[in-house]
Design a protein around this nucleic acid. Sequence first.
RNA 1: GGCUCGGUAGCUCAGCUGGAUAGAGCAUCAGCCUUCUAAGCUGAGGGUCAUUGGUUCGAAUCCAAUCCGAGUCACCA
Length: 608
Amino acid sequence: MAITELISGSVINAISVLYQTSTDPRDFQINQTKPEFEGDYTVVVFALVKKLRKSPDGLAGELGKYLTTSQSELFSAYNVIKGFLNLTIADAYWTSLLSEQYHNPIYGRGQTKNQKVMVEYSSPNTNKPLHLGHLRNNFLGWSCAEILKAAGYEVVKTCIANDRGIHICKSMVAWKKYAHGATPESTGLKGDHLVGDYYVKFGEVYKQEVAELVAEGKSTEQAEKEAPIMLEAQQMLVDWEAGKPDVIALWEKMNAWVYEGFEQTYKLIGSNFDKTYYESQTYLLGKDLVEEGLAKGVFFQKDDGSVWIDLTEDGLDQKIVRRRDGTSVYITQDIGLAELKYNEYHCKQSIYVVGDEQNYHFKVLKLICQKLGLPGADGMHHLSYGMVELPTGRMKTREGTVVDADDMVLEMIDMAEQKTRELGKVDGFTEAELVDLYQTLGLGALKFFLLRVDPKKRMIFNPEESIDLHGFTATFIQYVHARIKSILRKEGKVDRATLAEGITNLPVAATPLLTSIPVLYKLEKDLLIALEQYPGIIETAAVTHDPSLVAGYAFRLGQTFNSFYAEHSIAGAETPEKKLLRLAISEMTSHVLKSSMGLLGIRVPERM
RNA sequence: GGCUCGGUAGCUCAGCUGGAUAGAGCAUCAGCCUUCUAAGCUGAGGGUCAUUGGUUCGAAUCCAAUCCGAGUCACCA
């Protein structure tokens, strides 16, 4: 049980004994004590004062006295300042946590929740390569899935490939007209980039055609509708839906190129899925549900035959679910897919990692699913994240202002290599180890950069300023890990029995020289306090779907270790017992750093 | 215009279920490598928490209004 829960339980018990009153854990707060005060955790009692008719100081004092006398094995001291009850947790609590867990590489994982969760992320369009925004999406989704797993959920990672539609036809038309049969092989281009180039080409030609029509005296609106290349794309979509063999063949050929390219990128960034859905196979889903909804009275039909849902009572607008021509719209597919997903996996929760521009869409989608009574509807959750923007504004494929994912990753790896060479600490590395290190550092820096901020906040990326390798970065944390591993290699791992014995001998003061050595120095205890919080961090990050909590935690832990490292010698500790203690703290820290970074998809090196 | 989200140090961000003197990193300045990795450590300066009012023992945090920015409100996806 977490220390804060222990404290909370003790406080509730104390109040019931002292004042014969029952309290709710929400009636008071437990915070970590601020560094300028004495103590480890602080009970904030103000909210109880009125109910118990006590002064803050009086109540805090009585609680402190009771806790330290009735549970002296847990609470070793207390003080009261301005109504805050500062408690010192007994050293034995921290040292026993250490001896139980320091060797446990999976410390922090939660008990199984016996619950399935689906996480959908990435959702690329097959008409262009992935860009920086997709990376944020992928990293977020992948990391959330891992965090949920660590918290004890069973997770299904899914992806929906948006592989059909007018935008796909645009790159197909342009390729057909202007590529002269160019292939990834003939050009040496990655398939997704090749296809993306023709999507851009389409935009250029279209723009030019529109300009020409306008020059001939047509209105812009009219010109946009009549541009020949657009008409061609629309015709191609019709042909695709009709299953015209040459169109289907072209579509299959170009999509295969794109998937090949995506596969390389996913492999490079370490992304993977348990199941991929294809829009081309799911876009007709949901039609039955429209009929069902009409029968149930959830939907209504307008005079022109189109079908709608009225969400005005929920504070939203009316939303169309079937066009007057009988075809379904985007949201209808999503309703159908939601049903399909539930029928296939029966997940209690279904998380959609999609940009915040679709907030409204997902609000509507969930509402409709609920009104239709779909079994998974209440578990639907939109993990909405902010767009990655450039200083000049949003990235636009057509304007060539996108930061390409492959370029970005390779640039980061190059930067890691350059920096590593400058520092010259890698004597004795094989060529393969070096390549691996550069990738670990470069990719780590990029992932951390995108995951360290609150997902829902939009972020601005300035390509002029390279991503930092100092401070609040993956590199910093990776460095801490490499430092610890270096020590552990030299000093050897701590044997459990030896450690247990060492810890029991810690309070010794056996020789006069040692009397001034406390069981735990401030920084030693700070590390143990931080390590104790790890399971709680995983749990909170899982519930809130927020990897940035894990990133912040790993950084704080690394910071604390570096301060400890600078202040206290591990190999040259004052006593053999202290050395054992510090080695064990170091080992446990290395495990937690590796594990927490692992939840972000970031590896940590043994040496760097 | 309706709805939603955001505005905290020069920059990038924590803190937001109300709690002690608002914290990190970057940048700036000053120190620290004769034994565990200086990709590090220690310290300094830097704030009208957008504005105004309210709620109360206490507000960056909650409420209201205003200003600024973004998104969305398609028979597009």
